[in-house]
Design a protein around this nucleic acid. Structure first.
Length: 288
DNA sequence: CCGCGAGCCTGAGGGC
DNA sequence: TGCCCTCAGGCTCGCG
């Protein structure tokens, strides 16, 4: 499940293998993979043809390839199961191959978008003065962005009448955090996922942000290693997904801090993993 | 305006 | 063996 670190690994791979190449031709094999492109698959393919790709950029879980010299960008979101692979042109098609991009050079490789569940997709958009695609202008900076404003985040957090995990997953407040790293950062911070954000103090916000950054940087460090091969990957091949998580996916196993059994609770059509001793629920025990 | 929850999508895995 | 149910969960949209 790609969150910020996984998407950044993909971005780096694209920078190495795809930047500065010119598109020769595009095949859209599944309409849902371009559903965010207003003009549809044929228009997507026609507009991308002959464009030169610049240095890939990322904000949160979105990444985009700037197009030169005309401007605009190919925006990519991996959703739940999306992958961007650079493959030899002669490699057999993957089962869930959705989009193929061929290049006008002799490198012999092509870019493939593969997505079993088609939550993700590619689309073309105009970009603002900062190079940001217009449709993601509402996405907040992510915590690894040097321009992320910790103080502004704290104030926004206190203004929201919501609970902390909801806030962490709200991409307009802070981007790049998904279910896994939210649970991990909350475990490290000893915070229950339903704690109201209204009462957060500056030190508490600062500690939480620190843990969010730590867990993301740790994942990034591991994900970035297996990188020399001709393979832009997400979803585990580089091994970081099975690295030691402290909370997520550990239902029934002992908390690494206190030994109490980690619990899983249904939450927002998904799950929250937490240590019932380290992460005490807020006082008025709502429907935890 | 804001918080909240349904629905999208497909394959793996468990129970019977 | 096969069917049905649950689970995975980021994001969009509509409701109150």
């Amino acid at each position: 499940m790609p969150e910020l670190p996984e998407v950044e690994v993909v971005r780096r791979g694209l920078e190495r293998w795809v930047a500065h190449r010119t598109v020769a031709d595009v095949e859209v094999l599944h309409p849902r993979a371009v559903r965010r492109h207003i003009g549809g698959g044929e228009d997507f393919a026609n507009r991308l043809k002959d464009q030169r790709i610049g240095v890939p950029e990322r904000r949160g879980k979105y990444l985009w390839l700037p197009l030169e010299p005309t401007g605009g960008a190919v925006l990519a979101h991996l959703g739940m199961s999306g992958q961007l692979l650079v493959q030899p042109a002669e490699a057999p098609d993957e089962k869930h191959l959705r989009i193929r991009v061929r290049f006008a050079d002799e490198l012999g490789t092509e870019l493939r978008f593969i997505d079993q569940r088609t939550f993700g997709g590619l689309s073309l958009h105009e970009t603002g003065p900062d190079g940001l695609p217009d449709v993601i202008a509402h996405i907040a900076r992510d915590p690894l962005d040097p321009k992320f404003d910790d103080a502004a985040f704290h104030e926004a957090l206190r203004r929201r009448r919501t609970t902390i995990k909801r806030a962490l997953l709200d991409q307009s407040l802070i981007s790049g955090v998904g279910n896994i790293y939210a649970d991990e950062a909350l475990w490290r911070s000893r915070l229950h996922y339903e704690r109201p954000t209204t009462g957060f103090t500056r030190p508490r916000t600062a500690e939480l942000l620190g843990h969010v950054r730590d867990v993301m940087n740790a994942a990034l460090a591991v994900g970035g290693t297996s990188f020399d091969s001709l393979y832009v990957n997400v979803n585990g091949e580089s091994g970081y997904f099975d690295r030691s998580l402290d909370a997520y996916g550990r239902e029934g196993e002992p908390c690494r801090r206190c030994g109490t059994i980690i619990r899983r609770r249904p939450w927002m059509n998904r799950s929250s993993y937490f240590c019932p001793r380290c992460q005490r629920p807020p006082r008025a025990p709502s429907a935890s």
